[in-house]
């Protein structure tokens, strides 16, 4: 658990340096990443798998910068990091990371198309497709057993749109960004799935 904090902080520091920030700013960046409410909440709950996946997020961003500079040389590194992240034990975060980087790749392809024409843009998209396909082949070892298991569980039909309503945040929770106790404290907690106006935001 501790080693993954260092790994996440180091990765954020390096990606900040890659983006041209100074040493102090990069140190602040690494520290803030580790202090993010989601990260702290996962540590507090002892969700080890989520911590493992999250610690690879800044490294994926760093690998993506290599891909962005030269897709033909950078794509194996992005693939490696995404695959390790997908195999780390909690697929959701790896999925969000892949979606985010795919949006980045499409944006970069669009910028290349405007700047240099169709061929460089196609180069970006082709190599990104290689990233996706290779990552999917590697990640199937993690995803297929999960998929098979879910088919046999009560949640095989997924979650209806209204189900998470009680656990989700609402407009009133914006006050908690200014004051964590604006809508009450720990005494407001009732039970899992019924937490009233209180949300994860108020914890931190």
């Amino acid at each position: 658990m501790v080693a993954h904090q260092w790994w996440a902080g180091l990765g954020t520091f390096l990606v900040c340096r890659r983006w041209g920030l100074g040493v102090v700013s990069s140190l602040v960046g690494g520290s803030l990443f580790l202090a993010a409410p989601y990260y702290v909440a996962e540590i507090g709950e002892g969700h080890y798998a989520q911590i493992c996946v999250l610690s690879w997020v800044p490294w994926a961003m760093l690998a993506y910068e290599g891909f962005r500079a030269q897709p033909s040389r950078g794509w194996p590194w992005v693939t490696l990091v995404l695959a390790v992240s997908a195999l780390a034990g909690h697929f959701q975060e790896a999925y969000y990371l892949a979606v985010t980087l795919t949006v980045f790749a499409v944006l970069d392809a669009w910028q290349e198309w405007r700047r240099a024409g169709r061929e460089p843009a196609a180069l970006v998209l082709t190599h990104w497709f290689a990233v996706g396909a290779t990552t999917a082949v590697i990640a199937v070892a993690e995803v297929f057993p999960i998929w098979r298991h879910v088919q046999q569980s009560l949640r095989s039909s997924g979650i209806a749109a209204g189900d998470p309503a009680q656990m989700g945040v609402g407009m009133a929770n914006l006050w908690q960004l200014m004051n964590g106790a604006a809508l009450g404290g720990p005494e407001s907690y009732q039970q899992t799935g019924s937490i009233g106006p209180r949300s994860a935001i108020s914890d931190w």
């Binding site: 959701q92 999925y95 969000y96 979606v99 949640r155 997924g158 979650i159 749109a161 209204g162 309503a165 989700g168 609402g170 407009m171």
Partner: peptide, 15 residues
Amino acid sequence: MENAIYGLFQRLVPA
């Protein structure tokens, strides 16, 4: 729950 983004993601992102 009150905007289109949630509805879109709820359909696209695996539960």
